[in-house]
Design a protein around this nucleic acid. Structure first.
Lengths: 368, 368
DNA sequence: ATTGGCACTCTCACCCTGAGAGTGCCAACG
DNA sequence: CGTTGGCACTCTCAGGGTGAGAGTGCCAAT
């Protein structure tokens, strides 16, 4: 199970100490971030005192802004434009300025209700999770299935398909199910031409289930050497299936709400998103994220340049791991411009991660 | 199996007769389409005679263009701009002007090689198909798994999971596998408190396998009424699983290469794609496409406004069905601006559909 | 029927300009 | 001494005008 840390610790980097802001600086930074998130327009000192009750004049705000800029928390598109938060500004905001509300009770119930409508078998519920995340945060959502980091064998069934093939159905210890179609020749070559019946298959499966439960791929391979005949071959197949489950860590990614991001002014020229989509869809980007998220637990926020990947320098991620007690681990979260409504996104991601933990746990050991 | 029709019949609408073009008009239209597809810039009479050996003067081309415009095959962004093909113009081009080359032998081999690298179990190969399509046509690719239109029962296994649940693994007649976790109570309530063992489960499964093979959901429901005890309940479960497989026709959609489309100038303002993505991801759009494609067989091209869906008025689809002999049916194809390289896209889609037919057939009855 | 020529149209890139917004600084004030 | 009003300055942005270029449509000549 994934633990929840203190709510105020979304950093990927260590908490920056020694950065003391005055009360006023904090208020100004908060106002700038919140205004800019809403309007997408650089915000000036005048607009700020008008829209937020800062109780000081615009000149004062200006000097506070200048200080914040010197600290690297705000930046200037050009001389006579308003201020825009820098990545670091967002960071400080997320870390200590944001007033993070938890999800409405009614929203929570609505989400729960939607999950109750859908079969937890098959990946339909992951799609649902992505859809809910996307709709609720107006950003792009990403959800990956929960997979054990180290796959262990659970249970094997060999099924006669009545033609040239057989089906091996393998239940992993974490509850995931994998299957592989086997050419008849694979199992039969041990028998001297004698056709195998379902009874033979069941026998071999029984041997294997008794011998190999709870073992990892390599362990099975070692044991297989001591077996003979049909069971030995079946064990080889099991070993390779278990190992496959190990290596294919993030095989499917469910995304939703890409259109939401396309609507944001920062991605008005669609080509800007291209790199992001590519990274998301093709590479091992999310896979590299898994250990980071798992180590930190809870919700992690990665803002703009904090992201190691160049293509992601203009987006923020708000992600959390979810998983089963035995360590099967999945990811879920949202992706949007750095100008993202963090106070909305973070609780939503947190709630959904918690919910999926619950679902996966109550359904025993996970299902995906 | 999906039949191949004559290569020149990509229309969704009936072939338009009575539209006789002179040789010259045909040459001009072809040149306009091909130039515009490459350049994305409205093409003028002068540029045309320069770039293509039309052997006439620009004035002559101008009059031919005017004729084509009167026929509704070309259009004018504004008075002094070049011509652009209309949807109908593309239609005529695709129907009778295009010189459609089949795929390079080397491309074919490369694609085949990539497929040989991947397990056909799990949906990994669908992802691969989408990736190949997207890469090869520089458009967005869409692939859906092959699903039987009318699901029929094949084989059932009941597996004891050793805790509060059991797993029903069901092989459909078309080779697809579905599973559902069962709460212990579901099966046990027929037995007067007496715990069930794997032997009992096997017995019930055997009864059901003998009785229900090849039946549809409703048929199974009727038979279930005549069964008693454990088998009756198991049959209910089987019926509902089979019916589920019926209704969830297109449950997963694999897309790739959305970035390719974002790069096209017609979608430079990313928001334009938003509607398209939404339709593609959320709605039953593809499901409605299934019967159309299945009826026509082979590659179907749907250009701009020919598409019933408003959101799709600025894109073209080049799609084909693929499937197993027993009728399991999937879709695959590409989506791009109407200004699409049809002579490249069509053979690629056709080849991939053929290839997937082969793969699915040789692996017996399909796998997804 | 085809062509060269010519007048006409429309876009686009460019420049200029004025309005507006916002800053930075400073002197004055409580 | 922190805060404030004032003011000069800077920069963007929208709007309007202009000239070049591309392309058309038409017509008279071949």
């Amino acid at each position: 199970m994934v633990g929840e840390q203190s709510p105020h610790s979304h950093t990927a980097a260590p908490p920056r100490s020694g950065l003391e802001l005055t009360e006023r600086q904090q208020n100004v930074l908060r106002a700038v971030v919140e205004d800019y998130v809403l309007s997408a327009v650089p915000v000036g000192s005048r607009a700020l005192v008008d829209r937020y009750r800062l109780l000081v004049s615009s000149a004062t705000v200006r000097s506070a802004m200048a200080e914040l800029e010197a600290l690297g928390l705000l930046s200037h598109p050009h001389t006579s434009a308003g201020r825009v938060p820098s990545d670091l500004g967002y960071r400080v905001y997320v870390e200590s300025l944001m007033r993070e509300a938890s999800l409405d009770r009614s929203d929570q119930l609505m989400i729960r209700h939607q999950f109750s409508q859908v079969q937890l078998t098959s990946n339909e519920w992951l799609r649902l999770a992505a859809s809910i995340l996307a709709g609720s945060t107006r950003s792009a959502a990403v959800v990956t299935p929960a997979k054990a980091r180290r796959a262990r064998f659970g249970h094997l069934q060999l099924v006669e398909l009545g033609d040239q093939t057989r089906l091996a159905v393998l239940v992993l210890a974490d509850g995931n199910v994998v299957q592989r179609r086997l050419d008849r020749a694979v199992l039969d070559r041990t028998m001297a031409g004698e056709p195998l019946g379902q009874a033979d298959l069941d026998g071999a499966a029984a041997t294997i289930n008794a011998d190999l439960a709870g073992l990892t791929g390599p362990q099975i391979r070692r044991r297989a050497a001591k077996l003979t005949g049909l069971a030995a071959h079946a064990a080889e197949v099991v070993a390779s299936l278990v190992e496959d489950a190990d290596t294919v860590a993030v095989e499917e990614v469910f995304t939703d709400g890409i259109g939401n991001v396309l609507e944001q002014p920062e991605f008005a020229e669609g080509a800007k998103l291209r790199g992001v989509l590519e990274v998301l869809q093709r590479s091992d980007f999310l896979e590299q994220l898994v250990p980071v998220l798992a180590r930190r637990g809870g919700v992690t926020v990665i803002i703009g340049h904090e992201n190691a990947n160049d293509a992601m320098h203009e987006v923020s991620l708000v992600f959390a791991p979810y998983g089963a007690p035995d360590g099967a681990l999945g990811l879920l979260g949202v992706l949007g411009p750095t100008r993202m409504p963090y106070p909305r996104a973070i609780p939503t991601v947190r709630y959904l991660a918690t919910l999926m933990n619950e679902l996966i746990t109550s359904h025993h050991g996970g299902d995906a």
